[in-house]
Design a protein around this nucleic acid. Structure first.
Lengths: 256, 256
DNA sequence: GCTAGGCTTCCGCTCAGCGGAAGCAGTGCT
DNA sequence: AGCACTGCTTCCGCTGAGCGGAAGCCTAGC
């Protein structure tokens, strides 16, 4: 039951490490990479990259497009979907998210905290033309998003401290002053929901509430659900209510 | 602009090939595998598997659970989501699928044909307790599912011929008689929708319609949308209408 | 205690992998 | 046209990373 407990070389000079480095060279902002970019981002010599990538293409893990650029292949898509990334949470939450979406027509998100980022597990995009940067699998800063603020407000002290120390700016409205954000986070805990106003993307506002194990009350905060809309003027109360209903439903279903 | 045109060894004895074999050992029915299972399914010696898998775990591509079993890791989930698997189609279709779901409360599917299978690109699960086997990334037979029948009815002749030659049985209601299925497929083309009655799963019926490039009319069939419900008695007409509206909307949006 | 099955470690051989260097397009500038 | 430049591809001889049989280890079951 112990298992694979080799001290092993931690160095990154094995083929496996290199392959993983190549795969990790892709991210949301780099879905298409040329050979040289790939080599650069994985920190490998070009000929080596060429050979490895060739094999990955042959195996269907990558695909080479007509113009020579490489993209992630369907084979990896298949395998990736099998990862038990909060499968339970996502399955349980899906219908509740759909309810919120149906009732509000907003873009609805389910996110958890992954280190110092909000990891988006699911998204239902609204029809309204609100600019939304997140997709499933995105990781966005905690202090610029609705779900992020909720998750941050309920994160352990050291996470919060670290986050407050590095408040990067995304738009002119991003809150970069630690004290001001800290005040907001206290309010988030007290009032039970968070909002953002064009802090991540111009033209997009959001509301989010925590999902607590067992529903309302003092259960651990395991996730957050949020909605993105063009403006909060009209709908804040309505959205908060809808999200809270969904969050309670999700939390209650999780225990069972 | 040519590129990676090496004849190369097609044999499967490189580290890359082995790694891919290990990853492909996972599928929907085998999300958790022990070392020995992994070795068996990838056709590799156990010690070799042990070493490679150890490195994959170290790189976060796999995760070893407390009981020793391996599952796909979050790192691969991340990368897999970046695959351009019909990204355009999925994004365009999402809001329309949500509409159908909201209107019918049924489980709604978007699928394309991938060889001799229906590949499920998206799913909105209904609240009703209908047994549904498909998840995003599933591949199911073409002749046992609603979306599959639609895709098969509009597939090239040779695909249809091959499919009719191997009608595997999933339930007592599965249609395994070629002539009978062929008649049904003709009707699907004529009437514009397909149905199944407990042919894939007992207790589940489905309706599906084609998505044509440009909407209604003679555009190529590029996908199918379908709904799963406990029974067709009450809702058939309503479902067909809802699905057709969505399919037209998707098809029209695809061209723009 | 004994057996069986599966996991882990060892270790010496060898061949797959390596990557510098050179060749080969395309492209843009003069 | 000529030239410079950038990025992709191929070559090839050296070498150490990978290999996997064998042995050891641990747990579970009898």
């Amino acid at each position: 039951m112990a298992g694979n407990t080799s001290a092993h070389r931690s160095a990154g000079s094995g083929v496996v490490e290199r392959v993983l480095a190549l795969l990790s060279a892709f991210d949301e902002r780099h879905r298409r990479l040329t050979l040289t970019e790939l080599a650069g981002r994985a920190d490998l010599p070009v000929p080596t990259t060429h050979r490895l990538v060739g094999q990955l293409v042959q195996g269907g893990a990558l695909v080479r497009q007509a113009d020579g650029a490489y993209v992630v292949g369907r084979r990896l898509w298949d395998v990736g979907l099998l990862a038990p990334v909060q499968t339970g949470l996502r399955e349980v939450a899906a219908p509740f998210l759909a309810d919120v979406h149906a009732a509000t027509l907003a873009t609805v998100h389910l996110a958890i905290r992954d280190g110092d980022r909000a990891l988006y597990l699911d998204r239902l995009s609204g029809r309204a033309s609100v600019p939304v940067v997140s997709t499933v699998g995105s990781r966005l800063p905690l202090h610029t998003t609705g779900v992020g603020k909720v998750l941050l407000a309920h994160a352990p002290g050291e996470v919060r401290k670290a986050a407050l120390a590095t408040l990067t700016r995304a738009t002119p409205h991003t809150i970069t002053h630690p004290t001001r954000l800290q005040d907001q986070l206290r309010r988030v805990v007290r009032e039970g929901y968070a909002t953002t106003v064009e802090e991540m993307t111009l033209g997009a506002c959001s509301v989010a509430v925590p999902v607590r194990l067992g529903g309302l009350g003092e259960g651990d905060v395991v996730a957050a659900v949020g909605a993105v809309v063009p403006s909060l003027r009209r709908d804040r109360a309505r959205l908060v209510t809808a999200l809270q209903v969904a969050a309670q439903g999700i939390g209650r279903s999780l225990v069972r």
